[in-house]
Amino acid sequence: MTRSGELVQWNNKGGYGFVRDQAGNDFYVHISKLVDGQLRPRIGDQLTFSIATGRNGRPAAINVAVSQAAPLPNRTMRDIKRSPSSLSSYKVGLRTAAATVMTLLILLAIATERVPVWFGGSYALMGAASALLYRFDKLYALSGRWRVSETNLHVVDFCFGIIGGLAAQEVYRHKTVKPRFVAATWTIALVHVIGLAALALGWVSIALP
């Protein structure tokens, strides 16, 4: 028998939550039980589902489909960019400082003809790509859709996209809290700062045509 109810709890990272039927009963729901083609549900969505016995012997929801999506919060990218008063401006500004230092090192290396112009272009191109990925991931997180994987973000940042990645983290206030992600980001940034400093100061060189 098909039932209907409201999603009252949802762990987006784990992909599970609870749906409450019209009688007030809560049923466990896992993302694997969603009907094919359904986007990840959000708290407040109206769901249709059937009942089956779960792994722990308790009733659980299966054949889950979103019958009516909850209204999206009235938020814009301007809201995302607005820093809350509780956010440390020092921590946020550190990303801008690092991106600025790397940009200046690239310009110095090009001006002193220690690297070709295309080298700076690579940072600009990949930086733009990284910034777009962070923007999309932020929007996907707000809408409850599938996210850009952290591995992909790190790979693009490492492959010359770190300047754009740091700028996007600050502008969108995104991926700035999770310790492991932050540590990996700063490790990538440190590698690039050291490498760019070595090029700009002539410690190492790139063979120019």
Rank of each mutant, 00 (worst) to 15 (best):
I110D: 13
A197W: 14
T103G: 14
L87I: 02
R58P: 07
Y28W: 07
R180T: 14
M1H: 10
L72T: 04
R78G: 08
D45N: 02
V35A: 14
R42K: 08
M102F: 13
L72I: 01
V66D: 02
T2E: 14
G44V: 03
V193R: 04
T48G: 13
Y90G: 03
I163H: 12
G161H: 11
I51A: 00
I110G: 13
T100I: 14
D157Y: 05
Y28I: 00
D137G: 03
N25Y: 09
A65H: 03
H154C: 05
A128P: 06
A141N: 00
E170R: 14
L139W: 02
H174N: 11
P41M: 01
G57Y: 05
A97M: 11
V19P: 08
A189K: 02
N63Q: 03
V193W: 10
A98Q: 01
L72M: 07
G161V: 10
E6T: 15
N74P: 01
G44C: 02
Q9V: 13
T100C: 13
F160V: 06
L196I: 05
S205H: 09
L94D: 07
G127R: 02
G144D: 00
I43G: 01
R95H: 10
K175F: 11
A52S: 09
D21N: 10
V64Y: 03
A109D: 08
A189C: 06
W203R: 11
S4L: 09
K91Q: 14
Q38L: 04
G120S: 12
R82F: 04
F18M: 05
V64F: 04
P73D: 00
S88P: 00
Q9D: 14
A200F: 11
F49V: 01
Y172G: 09
S205G: 04
K13C: 08
K175M: 07
G195K: 05
S85E: 06
R145A: 01
A183M: 07
V117P: 13
F181P: 08
S86K: 01
T48H: 11
N152W: 12
R20I: 06
A189D: 03
P179M: 00
V117T: 15
L105R: 06
I51T: 04
V115A: 12
E6C: 10
V8S: 10
L108H: 12
F160M: 13
V115K: 10
Y134N: 01
V204W: 13
V193C: 04
L196M: 10
L94R: 09
T176I: 12
R42T: 07
A61L: 00
G24C: 05
N12C: 03
F119T: 06
R180N: 12
A98D: 03
A168F: 11
G195Q: 05
A69W: 05
V191H: 08
